[in-house]
C-alpha cells in the first residue's frame, strides 16, 4: 500500500515536471537574430520523425515551399530556398527559431510560423474555412518542432 502511494506520487511529479519543461508558444524567447536556444520539450528531437513531419501535407508541409533532396515527396515547391545544406548555414538554435516563427529571422517572410497560436487575422479551423476554436493549437506541437529541427540538423553537404 505504502509503495503504491509512493509510485503514484512519483508519477505525478514526473508529469508535472514534463509539463513545466515544455515551453508554450506564448513563452518562447527569441534572441535578437531570431534564434531559440532551448529545446521546447527539454529533450532532443527525433530526426526520422521530423522528416515525416516535413513531408506531410497535414503537418509541416515544408515541401510545399522547399526542395529537400533527402525527402521522398513528389512536387516539391520553390517558394522558399532549397533546404539542402541548411545545417551548414545555420546552427540548431537558429533553425529552431526559423521553424517556430521565421518572421524573427526574416522580416516579413511568407514562411508561416509553425509554433504560434496568435494573434492572427481571421484564424480558421484548419482548412475548413470556418472560424478557429478559441484554443487554436499551433500547426506543429513542441515535440514535432524538435523533431523537424533534428531533421534539419542532418541536412549537411560539407
Amino acid at each position: 500500500m505504502k509503495r503504491h502511494v509512493a509510485w503514484a506520487a512519483m508519477a505525478v511529479t514526473f508529469a508535472a515536471s514534463a509539463a513545466i519543461a515544455e515551453t508554450a508558444p506564448m513563452d518562447v524567447k527569441f534572441t535578437d537574430v531570431g534564434a531559440v536556444a532551448e529545446s521546447l520539450t527539454g529533450q532532443p528531437g527525433d530526426a526520422a520523425k521530423g522528416a515525416e513531419v516535413a513531408a506531410t501535407k497535414s503537418l509541416g508541409n515544408c515541401v510545399a515551399c522547399h526542395k529537400v533532396s533527402a525527402l521522398d515527396a513528389s512536387f516539391q515547391g520553390n517558394v522558399g530556398p532549397e533546404l539542402n545544406g541548411a545545417a551548414d548555414r545555420w546552427d540548431e538554435s537558429q533553425l529552431r527559431g526559423i521553424v517556430v516563427d521565421a518572421k524573427h529571422t526574416f522580416e516579413g517572410t511568407v514562411m508561416p510560423a509553425m509554433y504560434k497560436t496568435g494573434p492572427f487575422i481571421r484564424p480558421g479551423d484548419g482548412y475548413t474555412g470556418k472560424a478557429a476554436p478559441a484554443d487554436l493549437p499551433p500547426i506543429l506541437n513542441a515535440r514535432q518542432v524538435e523533431d523537424v529541427v533534428a531533421f534539419l540538423m542532418t541536412l549537411k553537404e560539407e
Binding site: 487575422i121 481571421r122 484564424p123 480558421g124 479551423d125 484548419g126 482548412y127 474555412g129 478557429a132
Partner: peptide, 11 residues
C-alpha cells in the same frame, strides 16, 4: 473563397 480558406483562415 478557396484561396482565403487555404491560408487556414475563416473565409
Amino acid at each position: 473563397k478557396g484561396c482565403i480558406r487555404d491560408t487556414r483562415a475563416e473565409t
